[in-house]
Design a protein around this nucleic acid. Structure first.
Lengths: 335, 335
DNA sequence: GAGGTCGGTCGAAGCGCTTCGACTCCACTC
DNA sequence: GAGTGGAGTCGAAGCGCTTCGACCGACCTC
């Protein structure tokens, strides 16, 4: 491995000069700079990450804690993770991948070892155990999600209340008066991962204003679960003409079952989903949907981290405006 | 931050003793060990990762390069990534997440900076640009996938040839004589990501033995693409009674279209998929499938890495035996 | 022309850890 | 009773980098 000292010797300057060429923290004459850069090129020098971290107490690593549960919401998580990794690189950071497995202890370990300069936590629960540890670790952190107490923390998330409201608005505008909400699996509510509740809150509030009756039912993914849920919904509210689907894994089963029951989408029944655009456009009916902007969330969270590390930090909640795209799954309520 | 020196002072021993307690590389008396461990506890000491890496020239980090293309095969990739991260932790390693974005240069950067002790590459192509760089970086590496030249490299993958053969075997055993293969998107073949070709090779070879006619057609995911592909298949081979589906995103559209055309599964047509078990069990028809053992692949690749770093390394190709599970989508060919 | 300023460079002191050699005891051996 | 060897501990020398203060000309200013 080539070291900084070797580069310095090769270029006929001192080690510190090379370091300053690299970091730009002091001015260097053009001629020296060029000479050093040439040596770096020729020798194929790469600064040693460990030495750098030790001397500067900055590792240029951001830790990303993803949820362990691989069973829900996977494409979104993956998209966020990839967006985080790629945008981190554009800011000169690498990303360390932590799974929920280790639990809150991971926060302590990473903070204690100075392995990462900052952390991004995904899938934050309302009363997340990691938050107290995070707060008194003093480490920079950004959450994707919205806990109950956001004081001293930066949060990035989709505005799920507005998302819920937007869905209701759309359906109400089309004349629907009885709307069923296909929620997330019951476990998601039990964990109090705020987004599910917030969506429903948004739906409820707007529904009241708009004179829409809401029936909210949690639902696991898959056909069997969806069939049962759907039967019960039409049982209780035969007049249901609108559906808001929160759970991605329920989208395709729902469309399929409706079709089998001879209910045409969108003539008899309208469906609005909250899901990534890709899911909406690849479904058997092109879905009217509110997009989950996974990439944007990843990108923003990195930008917040970088800003905070650069001292331009802001402790604030950064809620993304939801956007509803009308496609082929929603239309006027039948008369 | 608490340092090793502070722990040493608190415990009344020298710094090196604390280090040896931590690493176990020299014998330490029980009483000293206990005293040191207590001090570590009380002070909440965590070794500084950078200092450790610098002094020992081991970072205890494994770099994982995931493909950038988030559009294909996502759940499998995610599952592998999570499995890699969690099993790495059980061996004392953390995982650095690299995306394809940076391209082959990432290999050079990581190797050069000693940021990671080893690399795991996913989505390896037949003639992958990263391999030459990897070889002469001298860094430990494990590939998930199978390149053309495996010399000096350890590879972990599902035995896709056997997978293809297994599918044909199953269908042939049920009496099917005309089988269509719904392949991956054309782009996948163009990139020469070996697995797709290997599966087809396995299918072809076994088909010849078994007297089965094969029609192989690449197919994008989604309904529109599948509809076109399916129409052309029945056009060319009206007697087709068996389907082997490689592309996960085509599974649901295929089932749906077959249903719409009045072809019952499995009475009229049998379907065998190559996909994770979760997809197979959550589909509208419970699918007979060969599982893609994502977790197992992640776990094994970490084990290979750890073995190699520990000097117990083996340059070998570690192909996982495919397993076919019969579910509700396949049955005897109609007479 | 003395004093001040600033751009450009260097030397040296760490950052917190690992590891090697050396040292001390103590229990054995012959 | 000297010699041997292992167990347990310590001190010191780095690992490769950043960064601070110092230094040296060159250019201004009054």
């Amino acid at each position: 491995m080539v070291t900084l000292a070797e580069v310095a010797q090769h270029a006929g300057v001192s080690a510190s000069t090379v370091s300053y060429v690299l970091s730009g923290k002091r001015s260097i004459s053009a001629s020296t700079r060029e000479r050093v850069e040439l040596s770096i090129q020729q020798l194929g020098y790469h600064p040693n990450a460990g030495a750098r971290a030790l001397a500067s107490s900055r590792s240029n690593i951001i830790a990303l804690m993803v949820p362990l549960r691989t069973d829900m919401y996977v494409p979104v998580m993956m998209e966020i993770a990839i967006a985080v990794a790629t945008s981190a690189r554009t800011h000169g950071y690498d990303v360390l991948l932590l799974t929920g497995e280790e639990g809150p202890a991971a926060v302590r370990r990473i903070a204690g070892s100075s392995l990462a300069d900052a952390m991004i936590l995904m899938d934050v629960e309302l009363h997340d155990e990691r938050l107290p540890l995070l707060r008194d670790s003093g480490r920079t952190a950004v959450l994707i999600g919205l806990p109950a107490d956001t004081s001293g923390l930066t949060c990035v998330d989709l505005d799920f209340e507005a998302t819920g409201a937007l869905c209701v608005d759309h359906l109400a505008g089309l004349g629907h008066r009885e709307v069923a909400v296909i929620g997330e699996a019951a476990a998601v509510y039990e964990r109090h991962t705020g987004f599910a509740e917030r969506t429903v809150d948004g739906i409820r509030a707007k529904a009241q204003d708009a004179g829409v009756r809401i029936l909210h039912r949690p639902c696991e993914g898959g056909y069997a679960a969806m069939a049962g849920t759907l039967a019960r919904i039409f049982d209780e509210r035969p007049g249901t003409t609108g559906f808001i689907v929160q759970n991605e894994a329920a989208v395709e089963p729902l469309l399929n079952l409706l079709q089998q029951q001879g209910r045409a989408v969108p003539e008899d029944v309208s469906v609005v989903a909250v899901c990534p655009d890709q899911v909406a456009t690849q479904a058997s009916v092109r879905l009217t949907s509110v997009a989950i902007p996974a990439q944007e969330m990843g990108r923003r969270s990195v930008e917040q981290v970088v800003a905070k590390l650069g001292g331009r930090g802001t402790d604030e909640v950064d809620l993304l405006e939801p956007v509803l795209t009308v496609r082929a799954s929603s239309g006027p309520a039948p008369v």
